[in-house]
Amino acid sequence: MIEFKNVSLRYSNGVEALKNVNIKINKGEFVVIVGMSGAGKSTLMTCINRMVVPTEGEVIVDGQTISKLKESKLRALRTQIGIIFQDYNLVKRMSVLRNVMVGRLGHTSTFNSLIGRFPQADLQLAMNNLKRIGIDEKAYVRADQLSGGQQQRVSIARVLTQQPKVILADEPVASLDPPTSHQVMRDLKRVSKEDGLTTLVNLHFIDLAMEYADRIIGMRDGEVVFDGHIDEVTEQTFEEIYGRPIREDEKRGDAS
């Protein structure tokens, strides 16, 4: 589904964000990428929808080498990749349902989307996704009336409504408290399994990673230092990835 072949990336200020990364992620996997901040986790993700372009190597998504895509094909690719942001990135003054419909923009003609005319099937899809996440009763509430956890769940519904093949979630629970973090991670894992989506999540909380991941990729200084199934992972593994003992604040804590 997603393949990195000898990918390196050096920013214009000389920082080497990625060093010769080779990974292959299969369809339907729920992968958690862990590592300290600055290890290259975010850069790895932004390569997948080409918000940044690697200086060397190839990124292949769904059979297409994305560095070679033209602008029009790139838009089509981006509709296949859903993103969940740390700060939810909802339009605060818009209703929840409208925010979720933003996920359909890439599939709707410009004119119809400008006058706000969406196919009934798309609206049904959006409402159904809100139902799956359990916030359909908030559909007509303005997004800024919702709590952080609810906003992040709206953004999950938005991503589902986009009907992507891949979901990228960049630190989705960094702004949330422990119980809400667990709820959001649970919802995310459940819906991505239900829809058979390939999901990549950046996390720096090791207990959350251990609990929800199918597979863990560990990064340090732009290099992949660990890649394995969750069964192979223990706290020792994290100490190897981080290169030092685990601190208590690197755990999110229990759901209760």
Binding site: N89, K92, G106, R158
Partner: peptide
């Protein structure tokens, strides 16, 4: 941020 999200979704 929402603008970035809309762009990223195509």
């Amino acid at each position: 941020r929402p603008i970035q999200a809309i762009k990223a979704m195509g």
